[in-house]
Nucleic acid binder design. Structure first.
Length: 284
DNA sequence: TGCCAGGCGACGC
DNA sequence: GCGTCGCATGGC
C-alpha cells in the first residue's frame, strides 16, 4: 500500500487498539500489530507507537478530512474523565481501565444498520453478518485491493444497495428475524424518508423519535446510533451488560444518566464489565 | 449441549 | 403505561 501519514502527538492515553476493538464498531481487525479496516469507503491500516500514530493508505488530506474526526482526536478526554468521575466516583475503575477509548464518529448509516443487526446478538456474529453484507453489496474501497481480508476491502453498502436486497436474502446472510427490519430501514433511508442531515441538527428527543419510528429500532439501538453515528455524547445505551452494571455497582442509581458525557461513561463501563464480569455479580 | 448475545415488536392487562 | 413472550442464529 503506497503512502502513509504519521501523526505525532503526546496523548499518552488514547489507544487506537482499544478504541477500534471496543464494542462500538464491527469492522476493524488487529493483524500484526496494525488495526486493519475500512471506514468512509477507505481501507487503511493503523499502527500506534509511543510517539504517535501511523496510518498506512492515507495522506495528510485524508487525515484532515476523515481520520481526525473519526478517531475524535481533538476532544479533551482527560477533561471528560474528570467530569464524569466527579459526577460518579464509582466510575473511577472503569474510566481508568478504558481510558484509551474514544467515541468514534462513524457514518450514521453504518451505525444504524450495524446496531439494528446487533440486537439480541453477540459481537463475533454481528461482525460476521456485517462482513458478508460488505463483501456482497459494498463497493470496492479506496485501497481495497490491499486489504488482507476480502470483505475488509469493501465499503459499507449504501442504503440504496441494501434497499435492493430481499428479506429472504438478508436471512441467507444470517440476519435471522432482523431481516425484515433491514429491508424497512434500508428502504426508508434510501428513499429519503429518514433524513440524516435533519437528525443531525434536531433536538435530541426529536432525533430519538425519528429513529425509533423505524421498525427494529428501539431505545437501545437509537441511543447507539445517536452516540456513535451522530456524536451525541449524552446518549446512554443500555444493553444487557450495562443493565447488569446498573443492577449491581450502580444499584442505588447514578447521576451519570442524562449528563453531558453519559455516553462516554457508558463506554467505559461497557469495556470494563466485559473484561471483569465477575466484579458485577448481583449480591443477595 | 444448552445458554446467551450491545433488544425489539406484539400482545395482554 | 408496564410486564411477558417469541424470535433466528451461531459463538461459547
Amino acid at each position: 500500500m503506497d503512502g502513509y501519514i504519521f501523526i505525532s502527538y503526546n496523548r499518552k492515553k488514547f489507544s487506537v487498539l482499544d478504541t477500534l476493538t471496543s464494542g462500538q464498531c464491527f469492522r476493524w481487525t488487529e493483524r500484526d500489530g496494525r488495526l486493519c479496516g475500512t471506514a468512509f469507503g477507505r481501507y487503511v491500516e493503523m499502527e500506534q507507537k509511543d510517539d504517535g500514530l501511523t496510518i498506512y493508505g492515507a495522506d495528510k488530506a485524508d487525515y484532515q478530512a476523515v481520520w481526525r474526526q473519526y478517531l475524535d482526536l481533538d476532544r479533551d478526554y482527560d477533561g471528560i474523565r474528570r467530569t464524569v468521575t466527579e459526577i460518579e466516583p464509582r466510575l473511577a475503575d472503569s474510566a481508568e481501565y478504558a481510558s484509551g477509548v474514544h467515541i468514534l464518529a462513524q457514518e450514521p448509516w453504518e451505525a444504524l444498520c450495524s446496531f439494528v443487526i446487533s440486537q439480541n446478538n453477540n459481537i463475533p456474529r454481528i461482525r460476521g453478518i456485517i462482513s458478508r453484507l460488505c463483501l456482497h453489496y459494498g463497493e470496492t474501497a479506496i485501497n481495497g485491493e490491499f486489504a488482507r481480508d476480502e470483505a475488509d476491502g469493501h465499503a459499507f453498502p449504501t442504503p440504496q444497495a441494501l434497499a435492493g436486497v430481499s428479506e429472504e436474502t438478508f436471512r441467507q446472510f444470517g440476519c435471522g428475524y432482523r431481516a425484515s427490519y433491514l429491508t424497512e430501514v434500508s428502504r426508508r433511508v434510501a428513499n429519503g424518508e429518514i433524513d440524516f442531515e435533519y437528525i443531525k441538527k434536531a433536538p435530541i428527543d426529536e432525533a430519538r423519535k425519528i429513529l425509533r419510528s423505524l421498525k427494529g429500532v428501539g431505545p437501545k439501538v437509537a441511543e447507539c446510533v445517536l452516540l456513535y453515528g451522530f456524536g451525541r455524547l449524552e446518549c446512554f445505551p443500555v444493553d444487557v451488560w450495562i443493565r447488569r452494571a446498573l443492577e449491581t455497582e450502580f444499584s442505588s442509581g447514578t447521576a451519570l444518566i442524562g449528563s453531558e458525557y453519559a455516553g462516554v461513561a457508558q463506554q467505559y463501563i461497557f469495556e470494563y464489565i466485559r473484561r471483569y464480569p465477575d466484579q458485577f455479580v448481583k449480591k443477595e
